[in-house]
Design a protein around this nucleic acid. Structure first.
Lengths: 296, 296
DNA sequence: CATGTTCTCTGACTAAAGTCAGAGAGCATG
DNA sequence: CATGCTCTCTGACTTTAGTCAGAGAACATG
């Protein structure tokens, strides 16, 4: 029933908002380009890329994209050059004139947003910003997905690097030698590593490895601090548990440091039970265990 | 600067939200109708209407709408009949089959919304609902506009009826004979009456009349109780002051009852000063006055 | 009841959006 | 270096979306 209420609010909001802000989409109009072309221009401006990447970002047919690019070229707004690394591919970027047009789109969008809040008082604007930021966080968190990656892939190293930085700061964890072990332990066939990426930035990660036959361990669980309180941690944990089951684990263990109180609370909530020390992690002060076969 | 922050939040939200929920728009797809046609179907289903009303709701060209309607008719989804009251007009409604399709769109939208919140915990859903409801209120309030109407038009009577109901309840105001006076006092050339309508419902109203040469009075100021706290009251007041200036008023007066504490606070904030009783309104306990010519 | 107005519809367009089937260049591999 | 694969491009479409200029019926008014 909370469900029904929530979806009703969402839908009510959507109707009203898109009607009023759908106007924002119109901001793509009025720069003398048809919508599709303007959207492409905007996307290139946000991040120059290969034709292929643009196609997947915008979900376009390759023939169609080709024509749109031609049009932008003709208008002197974009340049398409062969990628030196692979000359089948094309690199697309904006010309100075194209960037000027892109800035126009930006300005237009900014103006619309300003017009929207213009009738509101400072306090109301603040309330609106707070509400939208909260909604933004929750919606992003709800739609983020966990991808399995190699532990030594760039995105994984990025995420784990942030994790190390944080635990280094909080309880002096020393990561010496750890990445090398992870590269084997947290990769198939005896482990797995997962990251959640939003807008190109890692926002959470975690891995699972096999300790013993049927016994696994969760490692490197981390959630971006701007993303805490949106349920990413428990989703991550559930995801890791599924992965552990797929690896044949019947029991899952993990350790943590007493300074990570949010993590400890999370493990408690998720049904992990305190257990005596296992292993020789000198930084761990708390140890947990959970059966993965018990009925939820 | 609060401005910049607010617009940044809005734009960040828009990008993320439309990307994820823009999916919601897709819900118009996949029912075997092109987007425009589906949108029309949806609109008819929400409230059957004349072709004219649909045209203005959706902003369509009359020739285009005509063709879209023809298409819905051919597919057996809608019926178009002459309006008995004016046989130039056409009434449009859905057939049972059309209503079934409409329900499909509804279900699809509901499903999307449910999928969105599915990964969230109950508490997070509640937070999301609260945040979106707050944003919804503020955005609606910010985009509502005041329209001048005749004091005895249906929409004005509706709004004033709600006002009377409320002040009747709060301090026993008796509206006997008032509507007849309003019909003259709050209409051009010596007055004006304004309502704000959102989704077909009046959400605020207020009028101005001429007491004396250069002296006006604000009357019937009311804000829907679901809409309080969003700044509608002060916007309404500013709007009425503009109208008063247009009528040549240099001074504006108003009275109110002590039970209406929010209204009193509003008048204080807006620069109205307490003044001795004027007129013979037996229900008024507080009297205010403000110069409309003084520099803001 | 003549005249102007309102409302819907049709015909005749144009531009945008999107699809599909190759062609051709460039790369990767055995 | 032949073969298959990947990536982009072109040509030849179809469908949507939207505009514009009347035509014709129905209403409103003097």
């Amino acid at each position: 029933m909370a469900d029904v209420a929530t979806t009703a609010v969402i839908r009510r909001f959507n109707r009203a908002y898109t009607q009023r802000i759908g106007a924002l989409e119109d901001s793509f109009l009025g720069v003398g380009l048809p919508l599709g072309t303007a959207r492409l221009l905007f996307e290139i401006g946000a991040e120059p890329a290969t034709a292929q990447a643009l196609r997947s970002r915008l979900g376009l047919d390759s023939g169609y994209l080709s024509r749109l690019l031609r049009r932008l070229e003709e208008e002197g707004l974009a340049v398409v050059t062969p990628d030196p690394a692979d000359r089948r591919r094309r690199l697309v970027d904006l010309t100075p004139e194209g960037r000027r047009r892109w800035q126009q789109l930006e300005d237009r969008s900014e103006t619309r947003a300003r017009q929207l809040v213009e009738p509101l008082s400072a306090r109301q604007r603040e309330r609106l910003a707070t509400a939208l930021a909260e909604a933004d966080l929750l919606v992003r968190a709800a739609t983020v997905t966990f991808e399995q990656v190699e532990p030594n892939s760039p995105v994984a190293r990025d995420a784990v690097g942030r994790y190390f930085a944080e635990v280094g700061q909080r309880f002096g964890f020393d990561p010496a030698g750890e990445p090398e072990k992870d590269a084997v332990d947290l990769a198939p066939p005896r482990g797995g590593f997962f990251v959640a990426v939003s807008d190109g930035e890692p926002v959470a990660c975690g891995g699972v490895r096999t300790l013993d036959d049927g016994v696994g361990e969760m490692k490197r669980m981390w959630v971006h601090d701007g993303w805490r309180g949106a349920g990413l941690g428990s989703r991550l944990l559930r995801h890791l548990e599924d992965a552990a089951r797929a690896l044949g684990h019947r029991v899952s263990r993990l350790d943590t440091n007493e300074t990570l109180v949010e993590a400890i609370a999370l493990y408690d909530r998720a049904g992990y039970l305190r257990t005596p020390r296992y292993g020789d992690n000198p930084f761990a002060t708390h140890f947990f265990e959970k059966s993965l076969t018990a009925p939820a």
